[in-house]
């Protein structure tokens, strides 16, 4: 006797009888719909983690820029092994802090950048920091491992959180800053960046702290 159809029948019958639904169905919906249903908004989610979890995690795991830059000179794969934070999705990121001199403020693109020369000063940029008004990338969302795709309904909700985190940087870090006046000044910074090759060696850092040094 072929057991198989019976087995399927029994399985089906078990589910039918108990009425159990052994999985959760969460429909893809736009953010406004989930807001309407009382689910958490990206802004509320970011409120929950920003001060209590995310900033402390970045602060405590940041590497010093000179050490990272030194390692990058030995080769990017060496530096990645030593300092990069691989996330669950096979990308890797730097979490880095340091001080330096702003040698250029580049606002030709709306994705503006300041170029920072870190000691020893050679007049060449070592770090570029995003200053808006448009911020790019998801390094801030992905670098710490605190915000995980698996915790979200789908890639759009996950994307919303990335955008919200960048917006938080625009509002709380960059808005108070007079970026044009940064040129030639000493700054201290703390932030996240994708650990891919490019120029300068640490590039497109998203700052959670960017302050003028006295």
């Amino acid at each position: 006797m072929n057991r198989l159809p019976l087995r399927i029948l029994v399985c089906a019958a078990c589910c039918g009888l108990t009425g159990c639904v052994p999985w959760t169905v969460r429909p893809i919906e736009d953010t406004t719909a989930s807001v309407a249903k009382g689910a958490i908004t990206p802004a509320a989610y970011v409120d929950q983690i920003w001060t209590s979890k995310l900033l402390p995690a970045i602060e405590s795991s940041a590497v010093d820029a000179p050490a990272l830059l030194h390692s990058l000179q030995q080769g990017s794969s060496t530096a990645r092994t030593q300092f990069a934070r691989p996330d669950a999705n096979a990308a890797s990121y730097w979490i880095v802090k340091g001080q330096g001199r702003v040698i250029a403020v580049d606002q030709r693109s709306r994705n503006g950048l300041v170029m920072v020369d870190v000691a020893p000063f050679d007049g060449r940029p070592d770090v570029s920091i995003q200053i808006g008004p448009v911020l790019r990338g998801t390094s801030l969302r992905d670098a710490t491992g605190l915000v995980r795709f698996t915790d979200f309904l789908n890639q759009l909700h996950f994307a919303d959180v990335g955008n919200e985190l960048n917006d938080r940087v625009l509002k709380s870090v960059l808005a108070p800053l007079e970026v044009k006046a940064l040129k030639g000044r000493q700054v201290s910074f703390l932030g996240t960046a994708a650990a891919d090759e490019g120029a300068p060696p640490i590039h497109a850092l998203v700052p959670v702290r960017l302050e003028l040094q006295p």
Binding site: A88, N89, A90, A91, R148, F149, T150, F152, Q155, F158
Partner: peptide
């Protein structure tokens, strides 16, 4: 690893 993984 986690169930859901996003590949860039």
């Amino acid at each position: 690893v986690s169930e859901k993984q996003a590949i860039d």
